[in-house]
């Protein structure tokens, strides 16, 4: 095979490009952002579910919320503790977590996820201007 050298060179270049993020950041890991709560969120102590649950499953919870509000028209969420919540991202979640940039965005950026929630949902329901 006359192209042997070319093929091997190509493979090497390919491997180098694919593994670039690994060796470029070798040894270092970007630190995970800290959770920052507003005073109101701190005062409430619990979210609609336990903190661990919310950390791991908030996207599934929001998915369930949007389906039941938009499609079934059922808008009240009764948490396991028996407390009732109006299922609304802007009007409920952001009521306590009004610091979207600190609370939502930092972690989403860290995890490199770009949820399109804010294309439609108002991200600053409390801002008066």
């Amino acid at each position: 095979m006359s192209e042997k050298k070319l093929i091997i060179l190509g493979l090497i270049i390919f491997v180098v490009i694919v593994t670039f993020p690994l060796w470029y950041n070798r040894g270092k890991a970007a630190p995970a952002p800290e959770r920052i709560l507003t005073d109101k969120a701190k005062a409430a102590k619990v979210c609609v579910r336990s903190t661990d649950y919310m950390k791991a499953e908030h996207m599934q919870l929001l998915d369930l919320w949007r389906d039941s509000v938009v499609r079934q028209g059922t808008r009240i969420y009764v948490s396991p503790s028996g407390k009732e919540y109006n299922m609304s991202l802007s009007n409920r979640c952001l009521d306590c977590h009004s610091n979207k940039a600190e609370f939502c965005d930092r972690c989403h950026n860290y995890a490199s996820v770009r949820p399109y929630c804010w294309d439609c949902h108002i991200d600053n329901p409390k801002e008066t201007s």
């Binding site: 499953e57 059922t74 969420y77 396991p80």
Partner: peptide
């Protein structure tokens, strides 16, 4: 997991 979650929380009309 979804089944478990349904068992705990409830959804109802206003």
């Amino acid at each position: 997991e979804e089944a478990e979650q349904q068992a705990q929380a409830q959804i109802k009309r206003g």
